Simulated assay, not measured.
Amino acid sequence: MTDTTLAVPLAGGDGHRTRAAGATVEFRALRRAFGATVALDGLDLTVRPGELLALLGPSGCGKTTALRMLAGFEHPDSGLVLVDGEDVTGVPAHRRDTGMVFQSYSLFPHLNALDNVAFGLRMRKVGAAERRARAAELLELVGLPDHGSRYPHQLSGGQQQRIALARALALRPRVLLLDEPLSALDAKVRLTLREEIRRLQQELGITTLFVTHDQEEALSMADRVAVMRGGRLEQCATPAELYARPATAFVAEFVGTMSRIPGRVVDGGTVEVLGRRLPVDGEAPAVAGGEVDVLVRPEAVRLSHDPAGRARVVATAFLGAVTRVTVTLPGGTPVKADLPTESAAALPPGSAVAVDLPDRPVLVAPRAA
């Protein structure tokens, strides 16, 4: 297999950081079952060179199984895994040129940070001077140049994760795999490392797969997000497209906040909701009586004070410049609206309000039971 140049040169280089070429990764009709449980059910997905693609979905959707198949830790019942067009489905993990960062860090407690980073190089018989020099350069790259002599128990969770990242990059992998690497960290550290990982990935130009169940993490870091459900791919798109034009009701509700407002399909292209008719985004589902739910983002909901209004404000949540206002419609359906905080101050709990939607296509789904 060919080697790719990362931002870290070999010892004795000129110190210039060179952008990696980035590999193309393809999953073709991957299927994997564990007994009666189907983890992957015909997954087809392509990761572009130099792209950071997030695999997003609830627990048990198959995202970690897909990552482990690319790493070589799991093997499909059928289907192929290709890297730059080369079939690596049957290639052992240690020959795949992938670097993996785990949720649990998996650092060796008896080795200091420098030796942890250099461990893979030692296994590949790289000379002592060269591997220590490369490990030192990687520690600098992840912002820990003075932490080489410290042991894992002397490092914070965020520092341990940086060491794990440096260790994965030491072998100059064609593909970097991140398995929920930030989930064990507190919110502030998670945000900092999120930005740092993205910066390093862009600087190195390395193709990266990032597994997470955190939608904010996926949307803020990834070039594209692949949303999975039940071992299948629901949609793969840029964060903006995924949020604005979800392909399915599942994607719409899993990515961001959605309210379900009762509506009725008038014809194949129009739905009646909140006393008005709006065009349907896509094809309306065929349901008995035409009863559907209209899926609406909170920023699209319009509220106005109206003494005769049949909706009531039941709660407000301050989010800074925006306040999330929850109202109930007649019949008890909750609807969330994001309003400028100054405007929301005029609508305290108990206020009677009118609810309206903008005149644009809406996504509809079968009525929830």
Rank of each mutant, 00 (worst) to 15 (best):
G290V: 02
A311E: 11
S259M: 06
G289L: 03
A288F: 04
A284T: 02
A311S: 15
S304E: 15
V301D: 09
L295G: 11
P298W: 02
P262H: 03
V271M: 04
V273L: 05
R264A: 10
G275L: 04
A284D: 03
A286T: 13
G282S: 02
V292I: 08
R264F: 04
L295Q: 10
L278G: 00
A300D: 15
S259F: 06
T270Q: 13
E291D: 15
V273G: 07
G290I: 03
D293W: 05
R297S: 12
G269K: 12
D293F: 04
P279T: 01
E299W: 08
V273H: 09
I261D: 10
P298R: 04
G268T: 07
P298S: 06
V287P: 11
V301W: 08
D293K: 03
A311C: 11
P279S: 04
V296M: 05
V294L: 09
A300R: 12
T270S: 10
V287M: 08
R302T: 11
G256R: 06
R276P: 05
H305L: 15
L278W: 00
P262T: 06
V266E: 14
G290K: 02
A284F: 02
D281P: 00
G290Q: 03
G269Y: 03
A288L: 08
D267M: 08
V271P: 00
A311D: 09
G282L: 01
I261T: 10
D267H: 09
P262R: 01
V294N: 08
G309M: 14
D281K: 08
L295K: 11
R310M: 14
R277P: 04
L278Q: 00
S259E: 05
L295W: 12
T270K: 05
R277E: 15
S304T: 11
V292H: 00
A284Q: 07
I261P: 09
L278Y: 00
G269H: 15
R277T: 15
H305D: 15
D306Q: 11
I261G: 09
P279H: 02
G289S: 07
T257E: 13
G289N: 07
E291C: 06
T270R: 15
G309C: 14
P262K: 02
I261R: 10
V287W: 10
P298A: 03
V287I: 08
L278A: 01
R264H: 08
R310V: 13
D306G: 07
M258F: 04
G289M: 02
A308Q: 14
H305P: 11
G290W: 01
V271R: 00
G309P: 15
P307Q: 07
G289W: 00
L303P: 10
V271K: 00
P262L: 03
G275Y: 05
V273R: 05
R260P: 04
V265F: 04
T257K: 08
E299Q: 15
H305Q: 13
T270P: 07
P279D: 03
D267N: 13
V301P: 11
R276D: 13
P279K: 02
G290A: 03
R276H: 10
A311V: 07
T270M: 07
M258T: 14
S259C: 05
R302A: 13
R260K: 13
R302L: 14
T257D: 09
G289P: 02
D281A: 15
P285G: 10
E299I: 05
V265E: 05
A300G: 04
V271I: 01
T257H: 08
D306L: 09
V292Q: 01
G289Y: 02
